[in-house]
């Protein structure tokens, strides 16, 4: 059986760590050529040096992105049939809302909302120019639907990403470009390592999860791969929670 992503290229952001890394590896394992983008070049190097189907792009998504961004990537890395975009890069700043400073707020919105918005836009322009199907998967969060303490900028950004997903899905559906998201629950990555290592906090959190455990990045990647695959051909505008049941109650 041909691997389901054979012949296509996938651009994955936040690919140096956690969910983005698991997604990059999963898509590559299923035949995609993967362009792994992250601001942390050293971590990309550690993870992917010598891996045949994954090329590395060190890029900070916190700043403005020129219209030519994908063209310049193309000239170095041959984007080829770039069909899949996974927006996984994200930042989480923890502090009470009254202590959030403007810089934190703006940086969170820049990385978690503006960057996926710009990349999706450029991805779609390229897709429409070259023709053929395309699919975007945005890594949203259970906080696209609920709040969490001390996360105001993050919660706002992830809720924005939910509607970004739906708005792009609606506009792009006539062109056969599908746009979906996943909403991870608490997943074992760097983003929440300190929280998970605090035994009392970890117990409190798992006690809140019907399945009684955290998710692992591979489980998020599996859902991303499903939504990116032709198996999901009638699914667009959906944000699939992968949360051990968190959102049921």
């Amino acid at each position: 059986m041909t691997p389901r992503f054979a012949g296509s290229t996938a651009l994955v952001t936040g690919a140096a760590s956690g969910i983005g890394a698991a997604a990059a590896e999963r898509l590559a394992r299923e035949g995609a050529r993967v362009v792994a983008l992250d601001r942390d070049g050293a971590a990309l190097e550690r993870r992917y040096a010598g891996v045949p189907d994954i090329v590395r792009v060190e890029q900070d998504l916190g700043g403005p992105m020129p219209d030519e961004f994908l063209d310049s990537l193309d000239s170095v890395h041959r984007l080829g049939d770039l069909r899949i975009l996974v927006n996984a890069a994200g930042v989480l700043h923890r502090s009470p809302a009254i202590d959030h400073d403007l810089g934190t707020w703006e940086h969170t919105l820049a990385v978690n909302v503006t960057a996926p918005y710009r990349l999706s836009q450029l991805f779609v322009r390229r897709r429409l120019r070259l023709g053929g199907p395309g699919v975007i998967v945005n890594v949203c969060s259970i906080e696209s639907f609920t709040a969490a303490p001390d996360h105001v900028a993050y919660t706002v950004s992830k809720s924005a990403m939910l509607m970004l997903t739906r708005a792009f899905a609606l506009e792009l559906a006539p062109h056969g470009i599908r746009v979906n998201g996943i909403a991870p629950g608490v997943t074992e990555t760097e983003m929440n390592r300190s929280l998970r290592e605090d035994a009392a906090a970890a117990r409190r959190l798992t006690g809140r999860i019907p399945m009684g455990r955290f998710g692992v990045p591979g489980e998020q990647a599996a859902a991303i791969a499903f939504l990116a695959s032709p198996e999901a051909s009638y699914i667009t505008g959906a944000v699939l929670p992968v949360d051990g049941g968190w959102l049921t109650a």
Partner: peptide
């Protein structure tokens, strides 16, 4: 295909969710 996905191990952390396969 969506039903089949939810039955696989690939969906091992997904529970209590309604997956909309509705073409938007």
């Amino acid at each position: 295909a969506a039903v089949a996905f939810l039955c696989t191990e690939d969906a091992s952390y997904i529970t209590g969710e309604i997956l909309y396969a509705d073409g938007g």
